[in-house]
Amino acid sequence: MEIRNVYEELGQENYSAVKDRFCGNENLLAKFVVKFLQDPTFQNLEGSVNEGDRQGIEMNAHTLKGVAGNLGFCILQSVCADLVDCIRSGNDDQIPELFERVKNTYTNIIHVIEKLD
């Protein structure tokens, strides 16, 4: 699978814009997308959720939102933003549901990235 196909399979319609962020260099984009597999932010977020650490949840969800946005993973960016907003507005009862959405979206992205050549 090529990098363009990752974005197509994920239903991201912004491939050209993302590629432009990397000066049109698909190899450079692919390098950073593969590095996403080693990024510890999701695991840190999951740990914060399991520990009930509101500050950790906010920080890690915000960080993951930024990384997702930079790589053009707009759906992940959006669900992370919802989780950040939930924490900031004090709606702690929504954390489990929103984290589950983040987790499902993240897991899907990881499975697709792992198909890269």
Rank of each mutant, 00 (worst) to 15 (best):
I75S: 10
V112I: 14
Y15V: 12
V67Q: 00
S48K: 07
R4C: 14
V84R: 00
I3G: 00
E26Y: 09
G72C: 07
D20K: 02
I113E: 08
N44E: 14
V112S: 08
L71C: 15
Y15G: 12
F99D: 06
I57L: 03
V79E: 04
T107C: 08
T41K: 08
T41L: 11
I75C: 09
D53P: 07
N5L: 07
N50V: 00
G24K: 13
E114K: 15
S48A: 15
F22T: 06
D92F: 15
E26T: 07
E58Q: 01
L76Q: 02
K115E: 15
V79N: 02
N14K: 05
V112E: 09
V34G: 08
D82N: 06
F22Y: 12
D85H: 13
E58F: 01
K65I: 08
R101Y: 02
G72I: 04
D85R: 10
G47K: 09
E97V: 06
D20A: 05
V67P: 00
G90F: 14
L98Q: 05
N25F: 10
N60K: 06
F36H: 05
E100Y: 00
G69L: 07
V112N: 07
N50R: 06
G24V: 12
G56F: 00
S89D: 14
E13F: 09
H62Y: 03
E9C: 00
K31N: 11
Q38N: 13
H111F: 04
I87H: 10
V33T: 08
D20L: 01
G72N: 05
N5H: 08
Y7M: 13
F73N: 04
P96W: 05
N14I: 04
H62N: 03
A61Y: 01
V6W: 08
L71T: 12
V84C: 00
L10Q: 03
D39F: 10
C23F: 14
L45Y: 06
L37D: 03
R54C: 13
I95L: 07
S48Y: 09
C74H: 11
I109R: 01
D85E: 15
E58L: 01
T63W: 02
G90C: 13
G56L: 00
D117N: 09
L28S: 02
T63F: 02
Y15Q: 11
L45C: 11
D93P: 10
A30L: 11
E2H: 11
D92H: 11
N5W: 05
V49C: 04
T63D: 05
N91H: 15
T105C: 09
E100D: 02
P96M: 06
N108G: 12
G11D: 13
L83C: 00
V34S: 12
M1W: 09
F99Y: 12
V33G: 06
G90E: 14
E8G: 03
L28A: 04
Q43P: 12
L45R: 05
K65N: 05
D92W: 11
N14V: 04
F36A: 06
E51R: 05
G24N: 13
N70F: 08
N104E: 13
L116M: 08
G47I: 04
I75F: 11
G90I: 12
E9W: 01
V18E: 03
H62M: 02
V18P: 03
S16L: 14
